[in-house]
Nucleic acid binder design. Sequence first.
RNA 1: GGAGGGAUGGGUGAGUGGUUGAAACCGGCGGUCUUGAAAACCGUUAGCCCCGAAAGGGGCUCGGGGGUUCGAAUCCCUCUCCCUCCGCCA
Length: 426
Amino acid sequence: MLDLGFVRDNLQLVRQKLQERGLSDQLGDFEGIDRERRALLLEVESLRARRNKASQEIAFLKRQGQDASARIAEMKEVGARIEELEAQLKGREEELRERLKCLPNLPHPSVPVGKGAAENQEVRRWGEPRKFSFEPKAHWDLGPALGILDFERAAKVAGARFAVYWGVGARLERALANFMLDLHTRQHGYLEVLPPFIVNSSSLFGTGNLPKFAADLFKLEGTDYWLIPTAEVPVTNLYAGEVLEAESLPKKLCAWTACFRSEAGSYGKETRGLIRQHQFQKVELVKFTLPENSYDELESLTRDAETVLQLLELPYRVVALCTGDLGFSAAKTYDLEVWLPSSHEYKEISSCSNFEAFQARRANLRFRRSKQGKTEYLHTLNGSGLAIGRTWLAILENYQEADGSVTIPQVLRPYLDGLERIRPAE
RNA sequence: GGAGGGAUGGGUGAGUGGUUGAAACCGGCGGUCUUGAAAACCGUUAGCCCCGAAAGGGGCUCGGGGGUUCGAAUCCCUCUCCCUCCGCCA
């Protein structure tokens, strides 16, 4: 959420940034409503001041055993007037809050201006896509042929966009989770946390998923519980409402969770394979930082995520999302895209973002520079490190052999009892 | 699922309609004393918002929301969370 005072003082800028995102002007008569709001507030508060003073007089008169009925009658009227004005004030505040809640974050000046994914800017590439001496297969052919991936039975027990992993397939998924968690906790200084996979709506508001994006989520019927679309939601809200010490920043957390997405509106898009599922696993990196450090922290967080791909020796590129492709809460985002030989393209496998104080304001995440200092909003960042399902499929496709077997990347072998290759089941 | 109890400032905890934004204690900060530290003593110690150039003035907040009242931390309703007991359960 943007700061009310900031929006008031920078309406032009906010309007321009909205436009750069390719969004229509949702501000409406922001200034007018705010002006009315402040006029009402002024009047209500002065009436309340009057009532407070009179209340003391009434108390005094009563204690003296004198008659206070005249003052009481007078205050009865004042009270009614206050009530009237309060209702109006509440209406104005509500209007402003509704607008503010639905306003996206402002893109950072370094974010390229553009309409959509086509105008994202490639920042760097790593690794050389392998030259195949045969036609590389897609993972949705390789996996089932190896007997480690099964969409039919998943459809039977759940439905479309679910998968069942069998045997080594399941182990590979688990090995990837362990490998990523070990890397980030041992080499990159993150603290592992295991959060709830179900959250309340207040947490989803904190990260910016609500109120606008309820359709992307699974809600548990008859409750205020939602399945998490990413560990970002529970982890970012861990310190909601708290005031942290500046010395405790940055806090670097990493979490393995299942993630659940309704994928409403994506019908017909990437329906085959593991790319777009209702349920997948992910290791998420989350940082809470000082405002002045957040952009450096974004660079290092992105590098931490890239390290996973480098160690797995999967070719990838880094792109800076343009204004038109940027998520609602993000001020700046780098996507990591892994090479997929079957489709001859780079496919998103991680998204690393700086949210600046946008989520901090919504979730009330603050810090203090000194004991007697003022509280300030901290900055939040997160990135996938990595999406496990997509890493799994990238390994299958990039490490496949002509006979349909798949070589296990070196770094994963210790997690699989030294297994070097997945071969078709007998 | 059933029955009961609770939520007050950084912490413990008092306060059951009127100078209570809130006692006391602990903690924190500043000081006195000391070579230094401890102890002791003294002082100080919530947040948010509005008006204002500032000085200053005002408002709101005792888990959230609503109500009663001239006036609510205190009374009523409701929601959330926590605790105890019973049942069930990994």
